[in-house]
């Protein structure tokens, strides 16, 4: 098992290097001079040349990459041309907001996909199944930013019971930054008022992001369960008189969860991408919104940083997913032995 983990981590390093080369090349071949853009159209040419030298833009590409990647490893992504601060400072500020959102959203879709999947398999071909089927088609078909706008319309305008913008109400003292996740920080410091307020702010964007993956996974779980319910081993344990609930939750759920976990991993990764729009709609100060602004302003250092960070997150999630699958399925875990 340990060998498996080390192997996966080692492979991961190469993936990160690959991503970094790709993003570096893309960011250098797009037209436009970053130095000129940073200084503005009316800056004198010598100042631009000076800045080009400072940014190593006058050197050949491989040398540029070497300097850049050396910085990246140390956490130095250069300066943001947009915010005029080191990119890493921006990342430290905005990444926790996105992570908090993604984690809650992931938590929501894991829990509810399991419940809905189990219910619709257990009550197959009844009204429960029919209702979840209709909800699923709707939920999968509607993009998350449309759900976000609808939620904003309902809870921000028609029935304003939940705050819809930002991470915290202005009358609440924010907890000290420990992890950067406001809910976690406020729990650590025992500030429950801040915790509940932060949770209220989190819930709508989290729902908007979770709804698509949730129903997709519920459907996959349902069909995996129904597929396995006709397997001989289920008829065997039924014949031995095991209680229905035990068969459903233990003997049926574990083998059926394997395909769902793979999809959950992919969904969690694409959730970071979907967050671009949802964060903009809910005015959520997250890294995805930061990334969009960086792109609109051709802020190359910031763009590279966001993409590499998302690449690393994607990689970590995938390794976790592989480990969970290996834990669920002994045929994968012990296959090499």
């Amino acid at each position: 098992m340990l060998k498996y983990i080390i192997k996966r981590l080692f492979q991961g390093i190469f993936v990160v290097i690959g991503i970094s080369i790709l993003i570096f090349i893309i960011s250098r071949v797009v037209p436009g001079d970053p130095a000129r853009m940073a200084l503005g159209p009316r800056a004198p040419q010598f100042a631009v040349d000076e800045l080009r030298k400072e940014m190593n833009l006058d050197k050949p590409l491989p040398v540029q990459y070497y300097y850049w990647f050396k910085g990246v490893i140390k956490g130095d992504f250069g300066k943001s041309l947009n915010t005029k601060r080191p990119v890493i400072t921006d990342v430290k500020e905005f990444l926790p907001a996105t992570l908090e959102l993604a984690l809650l959203s992931g938590f929501l879709f894991i829990i509810f996909a399991t419940i809905i999947g189990l219910l619709s398999a257990q009550y197959r071909d009844t009204w429960v199944d029919g209702l979840t089927r209709i909800l699923s088609y709707v939920g999968i078909a509607i993009p998350s930013f449309v759900v976000a706008v609808l939620l904003l319309l309902i809870f921000g305008y028609l029935w304003p019971v939940i705050p819809t913008l930002g991470r915290l109400s202005s009358n609440i003292t924010p907890p000290p930054t420990i992890t950067g996740l406001i809910t976690v920080d406020s729990l650590i410091t025992g500030n429950f008022a801040a915790f509940f307020d932060a949770l209220k702010h989190l819930i709508l964007p989290a729902i908007a992001l979770a709804i698509g993956p949730l129903f997709q996974e519920a459907r996959i779980l349902r069909s995996a369960l129904i597929d396995n319910i006709n397997k001989e081993y289920i008829s065997v344990v039924t014949g031995y008189g095991l209680p229905k609930g035990v068969i459903m939750r233990k003997h049926l759920l574990k083998p059926s969860f394997i395909p769902v976990v793979s999809v959950m991993g992919l969904d969690f990764a694409s959730l970071m991408g979907n967050a671009f729009l949802v964060e903009s709609i809910f005015n959520w100060p997250g890294l995805s919104r930061y990334g969009i602004n960086a792109m609109l302003n051709k802020d190359l250092n910031a763009i590279s940083a966001v993409i590499i960070i998302y690449g690393v997150i994607f990689l970590i999630v995938n390794i976790i997913v592989d480990l969970i699958i290996a834990w669920l399925d002994p045929r994968i875990r012990l296959g090499g032995e």
Binding site: Y233, H251, K254
Partner: peptide, 11 residues
Amino acid sequence: SQEPTAALNPV
């Protein structure tokens, strides 16, 4: 069961 492989839960 007649199929021992199918009769045991693989996980």
